[in-house]
Amino acid sequence: MNKTKKFFSVGPFTGPFRGWFVICLSLGALFMFPLISALLTSLKPSRMASQFPPDYIPKEVTLNNYERIFVPAKGGFLEYGAWHYTVNSLILAFGTVVGVSILATLAGYGFARFKFFGKSALFAFILLMFMIPFQALLVPLFRILANFGLTNSLLGVIFVYITYNLPLSVFIMRNSFAEIPSAFEEAAMIDGASVFRIFRTIMMPLALPGLISTALFAFFASWNEFFAATIFISTNGNYPLPVMLTLLQSSQRGEIDWGLMQAGVIYTILPCVLIFLVLQKYYIQGLIAGGLKG
């Protein structure tokens, strides 16, 4: 006790800094508490996770809940193991990230460096998408996807995700390209390089941080999206992970298997947390460059 007190009263741990540190630490604990408590519950044996009153710290630690989402019991909530739903989520994420990266890079370059007929009208459409998000267009989107036989199809959902990630990503890419001094291209042009050569060898490497942000946002958006996936995907076998959680929420004989459900939640959010921790620099920069800077 004395030692800690001493530690906190010497060096930088004095005065206003100590107060600030304590406040930040408590807030950090508040933000982390729901996540940590879900993690703890997912590690309890099924019976203990559903007992009243709950123990904060598991008396027994097991990975049984995770085993049961991967190898579900016959006749249980899950028709397939978590791996099946993970593959669906990965297909959605991969399709969206690749599609958005290509389309937004091209369009961002076009908007940043060229003057062409109808440019401002096309850019206005992109701005309009900021105002009217897909949630307001689900009804006709459902009908249009049905026209192409793309309801209950991952491809149909990928098309919707790509389109509605474009406004932010085109913005980010346009700003990334606009920040590159045009002297670079002019020099290359005089040396006789073609438009696509300049694009590939000069512009792309310089716009890479913006592209990483774009890809990150597309990944998070598709991995996390719930509303459109619930509506457009109708069979169990095509569910992505967030919709799989609906199955874990449904109760059997009025009892919800809470440990199983929280194992599903932790499994679904873990990739997001890890990717954010590794690439947060790009995430925050993209957030600032894309939207918050205006």
Binding site: I102, L103, A104, L106, A107, Y109, G110, F111, R113, F114, K115, F116, F117, G118, K119, L122, F125, I126, L128, M129, I132, A136, L137, V139, P140, L141, R143, I144, F159, V160, I162, T163, Y164, L166, V170, V195
Partner: peptide, 24 residues
């Protein structure tokens, strides 16, 4: 040239935003 760069994105915007907006 600029229009060609923007075109692919615009196809998606037309198919899955402008058309649904009209249809809505």
């Amino acid at each position: 040239g600029g229009f060609l760069f923007v075109l692919p994105a615009m196809i998606f915007v037309s198919m899955f935003f402008l058309w649904p907006l009209y249809s809505l």
